[in-house]
């Protein structure tokens, strides 16, 4: 009996090992995104986008999901991702760590992006008109989104500091970090936090989908505009795929329009009408603020 078992185990091991062949790797364009929204939204969006890019560029495109903002930056630096949809801050962090990488495009709304501050109706917080009134948030339970989010942390924190509100002024001596914009909305709406800051785009999309309950949560303030999300491409794509590839890739994004059914769906999921060209220099101000707040060294 034992002998038999041994033989079987030995055979199984050999069978297993022999089964492992090696696969020829072909060049794949790996795209990614910071996980700023619910994963099912991202999965739907990037599935369509990958298939469209694959068709337009005539190569295999794979979407690689990551669980937090810093991991997206790391994956870009280590070369696991060729093209990433970054927020302004993570984009700058990634660009400073990957020589030659290049901002290629952004949406029309990213030129003039806003964060909004929201509050729970049951809190005593009122709508404010002047940035200095952000002081009323002192002593409240307040949450940001991800710690590396531009519209969910960096810019809100920048404006809060401008109004004289520091992180330690919130209840519990520190703000919360919900991890994503959708989570911030959910937490403020349910009352876990009395107030929070998130991207205007995500707020609007949730309004459209009826996921905002106006009897529970409302907007108290909208920030001045700044540059936000963008596509950041590795500097070596022309070498890796073919000459002029980065240019071709950029053009594919710029050509997206609502005439094609698939492209219309993509633009819809990105909450935009079209992509426009963008460049590294658009993010100089973000870099400065990032350094000031300590998120960029």
């Amino acid at each position: 009996m034992i002998k038999f078992t041994k033989i079987i185990i030995a055979l199984l091991s050999i069978f297993n090992l022999s089964n492992i062949g090696s696969l020829k790797a072909e060049e794949i364009l790996r795209i990614g995104a910071i996980p700023d929204q619910n994963p099912e939204h991202l999965n739907r969006l990037y599935k369509v986008l990958s298939s469209e890019l694959s068709e337009q560029l005539n190569l295999q495109v794979r979407y690689i999901p990551v669980t937090n903002y810093a991991a997206a930056v790391t994956a870009f630096r280590t070369g696991n991702l060729d093209l990433v949809w970054f927020g302004a801050l993570t984009g700058v962090q990634a660009r400073l760590q990957s020589k030659g990488s290049k901002v290629i495009a952004q949406r029309d709304i990213d030129e003039k992006f806003h964060s909004i501050f929201i509050a729970n109706k049951k809190s005593s917080i009122q709508k404010i008109n002047n940035i200095n009134d952000l002081k009323t948030l002192k002593g409240k339970r307040f949450t940001f989104g991800s710690e590396s989010s531009t519209s969910g942390r960096l810019m809100p924190q920048y404006f809060l500091n401008k109004a004289g509100v520091q992180s330690k002024d919130f209840k519990g001596a520190s703000p919360g970090f919900s991890g994503s914009h959708d989570a911030t909305l959910m937490l403020v709406q349910s009352g876990s936090y009395e107030a929070g800051a998130l991207s205007e785009e995500v707020w609007k999309r949730n309004l459209d989908r009826g996921r905002v309950d106006p009897s529970k949560v409302f907007v108290i303030w909208k920030t001045p505009s700044y540059h936000n999300y963008h596509w950041l491409a590795q500097g070596n794509l022309d070498k890796k795929f073919k000459k002029g590839f980065t240019k071709e890739l950029t053009n594919v994004f710029l050509r997206f329009n609502e005439k094609s059914k698939k492209q219309k769906q993509i633009l819809g999921l990105f909450s935009t009408k079209k992509f426009i060209i963008s460049k590294n220099e658009n993010y100089n101000k973000i870099e400065k603020i990032g350094r000031k707040i300590g998120k960029i060294k």
Binding site: T5, S13, L17, I20
Partner: peptide
């Protein structure tokens, strides 16, 4: 059910089986 000597061989095969199973 098993003598120590066999136990040794079984341990070795459990390790090799687990390794090949895990990797494949």
């Amino acid at each position: 059910n098993i003598s120590l000597k066999n136990f040794f061989f079984i341990s070795i095969s459990i390790f090799s089986l687990s390794l090949s199973l895990g990797i494949s």
